[in-house]
Simulated assay, not measured.
Amino acid sequence: MRTRIVIFCSALVIAVAINGCSTRGAEEDSKSIEKQDEQVVFPAVKVTRANPGENLQIPGELMSYYETDIYPKVNSYIRKMNVDIGDKVHNGQVLAELEAPELTAQLAEAYAKVRSFEAQMIASKAVYRRLLVAANTKGAVSPNDMDVARSKVVADSLSLLGANAVYQAHQEMISYLRIKAPFDGIITDRKLAPGAFVGPADKSATPMYRIKQESMLRLQVAIPERYTDAIREKQPISFSVVSLPGQMFKGKINRVTHNIDRQTRSELVEIQVINLGQRLAPGMYAQVVLPVGRSGSSLVVPSSAVSTTMEKCFVIRIDNGKANWIDVKKGMESGGKTEIFGPVKDGDTVLKTANDEIPQGQPVKVTYSDF
């Protein structure tokens, strides 16, 4: 009896052990199958067409609408300077007065020549008129005398015209002794003082003043090459400056260069800004918010579908159930979507989340999801 009990207990233990091993084996097989299924099932999306757009935030620089250095046009000495740094000036205002005695002497000489040629022409005309009266009497005046008198009048007239031209030129040179503002603006720099020699003969070529127009400014912005197709004239923008936090200023694109800088790979655009209250100043940096969009539709995918490594930028397209790395270039990004360019087309299936851990040609199982 005791022997039978021992045999029964041993059989029971063996049965339980076998059953436990079978159960564990089945569970491990089941987990392996589930794990394998999880490895090959990936969310995927269809490549679609859309009109992408985004608010591009890029830095810009405010500049004077007009800005120039003031140089004298004639050799002279500064007699008086009427304005200084910070003074607001208007177009045509006299900024400085120069003196050049030799120019005054040349003007007087030119005026004397004009008066001399006027007197000669008056005398020539009088002689010619008297000869015309005398010619009414047959044989009183020879034809040669008439021709000489007529030629004298013409020569004296031309001499007077030349003298007048020289006199006007000297008058123009004298006017250069009064330095005038070329436009409304503000004096931002003064280099010289009364008594200094200035003019084209001055080898140092130091400007007398620097003047900037501040009532109107230019905001220059360099647009990256990939966004140039989205830029249009009269396009509205907004911008802010560090010195006025929390305040936004508005403007429109007035000029587009239509030229890509080779070094920066960007296109320069210009916004005209009315500087009310002179709150903005040339030289300020601005943070520009520029809404950009394509003129037509293009291909877009979720931003997570584009993977960028040190070597390439790609999406993983599913071709016949296998992963295929497709090199693309990124365009605009907005709202979790990225514009792509490359050998893909509308309706292609790509993995929603791409990474370089999925090797080329790996069989994958996908399930479609929304962007």
Rank of each mutant, 00 (worst) to 15 (best):
I5W: 06
I7A: 04
C9W: 09
S10A: 05
A11M: 09
A17H: 12
I18M: 05
G20P: 08
R24Q: 10
G25K: 14
E27Y: 04
S30I: 09
K35I: 08
K35M: 06
V40R: 10
A44F: 04
V45I: 04
A50N: 08
E54S: 04
N55W: 10
E61Q: 02
L62Y: 01
Y65A: 09
I70M: 07
I70S: 05
K73F: 15
V74T: 02
N82A: 05
V83S: 06
I85V: 15
Q93G: 13
A96R: 00
A96T: 06
E99H: 13
E99K: 04
P101H: 09
L103Y: 15
A105S: 08
Q106H: 11
V114W: 00
V114T: 13
A119V: 12
Q120S: 08
M121W: 04
I122V: 11
R129N: 09
R129P: 03
A135S: 11
G139N: 10
A140T: 07
V141R: 10
S142T: 10
A155T: 05
L160T: 02
N164F: 15
Q168I: 02
H170I: 11
E172L: 12
S175F: 12
Y176P: 07
Y176S: 04
L177K: 12
I179E: 05
I179H: 08
I179S: 14
P182L: 07
P182C: 10
I186E: 11
I186W: 09
G195Q: 14
F197D: 12
S204P: 12
A205L: 02
I211E: 01
K212Q: 04
L217P: 00
V221A: 06
I223Y: 00
Q235N: 12
P236D: 06
P245L: 02
M248K: 12
M248A: 06
K250G: 05
K250I: 15
I253R: 01
R255H: 15
I260Y: 00
R262K: 12
R262G: 05
T264C: 10
E267W: 00
V269E: 11
Q272E: 07
I274A: 07
N275E: 05
A281C: 10
A281W: 09
V289T: 11
V289H: 10
L290T: 15
L290H: 02
G293D: 12
T309S: 00
E311Y: 14
K312Q: 11
F314I: 08
I316N: 04
I318A: 05
D319S: 13
D319K: 11
N320H: 10
W325K: 09
D327H: 01
K330E: 13
K337D: 11
K337T: 03
T338W: 01
G342A: 04
K352D: 14
T353D: 06
E357I: 07
G361K: 13
Q362R: 02
V366Q: 03
